[in-house]
Design a protein around this nucleic acid. Sequence first.
DNA 1: AATGAATGAGCCTTCATTCAT
DNA 2: GATGAATGAAGGCTCATTCAT
Lengths: 205, 205, 205, 205
Amino acid sequence: MPVTDLLERSYPGRRAELKRDILRAALGCFNSNGIEATTIEMIRLACDTSVGAIYHHFGNKEGLVAALFFAAMSDQASLRLRYFEEAETTKDGVNALVFSYVDWVDSQPEWARYQFNAGFAVSNGPHKEELAERNRLRNQQVQEWFLRPGVGELLTRFPDELVPSLIIGASESYCRAWLSGRVKQSPSAHRQVLADAAWRSLNDV
Amino acid sequence: MPVTDLLERSYPGRRAELKRDILRAALGCFNSNGIEATTIEMIRLACDTSVGAIYHHFGNKEGLVAALFFAAMSDQASLRLRYFEEAETTKDGVNALVFSYVDWVDSQPEWARYQFNAGFAVSNGPHKEELAERNRLRNQQVQEWFLRPGVGELLTRFPDELVPSLIIGASESYCRAWLSGRVKQSPSAHRQVLADAAWRSLNDV
Amino acid sequence: MPVTDLLERSYPGRRAELKRDILRAALGCFNSNGIEATTIEMIRLACDTSVGAIYHHFGNKEGLVAALFFAAMSDQASLRLRYFEEAETTKDGVNALVFSYVDWVDSQPEWARYQFNAGFAVSNGPHKEELAERNRLRNQQVQEWFLRPGVGELLTRFPDELVPSLIIGASESYCRAWLSGRVKQSPSAHRQVLADAAWRSLNDV
Amino acid sequence: MPVTDLLERSYPGRRAELKRDILRAALGCFNSNGIEATTIEMIRLACDTSVGAIYHHFGNKEGLVAALFFAAMSDQASLRLRYFEEAETTKDGVNALVFSYVDWVDSQPEWARYQFNAGFAVSNGPHKEELAERNRLRNQQVQEWFLRPGVGELLTRFPDELVPSLIIGASESYCRAWLSGRVKQSPSAHRQVLADAAWRSLNDV
DNA sequence: AATGAATGAGCCTTCATTCAT
DNA sequence: GATGAATGAAGGCTCATTCAT
């Protein structure tokens, strides 16, 4: 089975090689120095091309920031989809959400770190509409899964607004802690504990 | 009962008036534009002083960023302390953590928003040591409360690293959603639900 | 009588079609944005070719600027020539100069606007020698016409340097005003008034 | 009688010294290289200050271009006013317009050259409204002079739009020729000839 | 303590031009 | 002849910080 990395999945083909090189370099720089503190020159050095090439492919710095962010979102979404495909009951669905979240962070820590840091920049920059649209689509797909015939009981004991936080909140909190070095054990090591805790928090004793 | 705002609590007295003005202006600017995108000149305009005065009181931009961050931390800590003082059992302690967190965000949304955004900047800037030390102290105080004689059962079913996330994760997640406008109901409206869910997630069925 | 536009006259034939397309697009861009502010990319977009094609046909940006300028000069010169052919007396000659100038601006306002704006660029660019030579030729031809046997009296009451300004100054001034929208009536509407005024300004009461 | 140069008249006082230095340097650079081709760095070198100081005083390059243009306009206007004050009849008024125009160009050739070149930039840049307003005021003042009681006969034989060109067209044309080196005699040397020609062009034989 | 003009390093971005296909 | 990705020098502008008053 050939190894396919996140970027190869987002920008397949040989022609896109430079584009992938730039994105990889940008990810490293943004995570090391912060987005604002990273200069185009740093990225250029890290992937050995020209300033012009970067602007040719991404328009400007904010375009690069957004492309990176959306690539991460897409990759995370495709893992969630895979996990959903094998789920049947509502509990399976909660497991799928927690597992896919936690496993993705565990396997792509650099991308996860970036996603946490870049959220503000993207949602306040010129690509905020695209971000809002992608978020809307994601939420809709998740909701549709839980409303699918055959899934069974619904999570109606809580306000709709609260449910996502109850499911994913603890996992997200732990992942942040892991990425910033405050805890040592990888998130995946706790995947079942986190999923069970989420499930318990959603149900009466 | 006199109204005392967050800044008056952190910098009391008449002599500190200008200092408080500057901090208030900075908070607004940082939240509106982002920290990096805010210039000293913007802050100066917003509080009608001189550039020199800002540097006189805070040394440099990073000093301002940190002063703001630590003021928020202190204020949040003092509320947590008040709630802890009235708690007795372990469950009371979990409630105190969730309630104090949620109520503080609800009453100081601008400071909470800033705290979320400024974390990266402070923990990578020249005040990172002070931040680490304050975090250490906070964690120690919370742990000591739960180990206090008379508190009763301990939360030993889970790895230590996981417990904070199980307690506060869902609340934090919901607060973030509220501050960014993704949900409408204020966090305080759900305080009991969030605390109960946290408690359930920590205990067997 | 077939319609023949300025560019078809300068670059006749089917093979020159692309060349004419490019020049037309460049004229529009230069007039809208100014010459320096117009990029090759803008021109490419406006005529739907490739950057390479533009460079193939005109060498570089300054070549394009000059080609456009010289096309305008040639077209204006050919109209002047036509008017001169039907003139006999000195007064006819003055009329021919004023009418041909005014009518050309009226019929080719975009080219006239360009001519006013591009003068500086061409006379300071790499084609300044060609421009000087063309100017010399034009002046010589005009002078020769007035010295032709049979034309009659000469305009000797004024320094030679002054005569061209006395003949064409008012017309040029009015044309500039018209092209920049400061006056509404087209220059041709005033052709006879302008020619008569020029004639009066050259003669005793 | 102390010598007062154009800039001292526009920006009097010792505090404005740097501002005047910058403007003087900018004028030289703009005339030598063209406005677009002049860089802020060139201006900085020519007056030995810092980039920041230039931006502090003029906002940006276009602000500098406009300040220079408006200084020239004001200076020219004040000379026109002086000449108008000593004029009585309509013919005196025409003389005042021609003389003040021609003498100003003769005494401030660098500023006149700049005015010709910068017109396009200013009337298409962010200060176009201010330019339009200043032009309106100037035209109004001139018109009011000719309508003053006691001035006598009016110039009603021609459309209003045409009169300014008839008066100043030849002079402007000659001044352009002089500034670009196409003629040698200074405009002032021909002031009476130009004024008389303008007057004749406005009157029946 | 307060002021704000001055500094200048450094950033993002543009764009004429080239050249391999 | 045509294409357009790649190049990289260079420019306008920003802004944290200093310091003379």
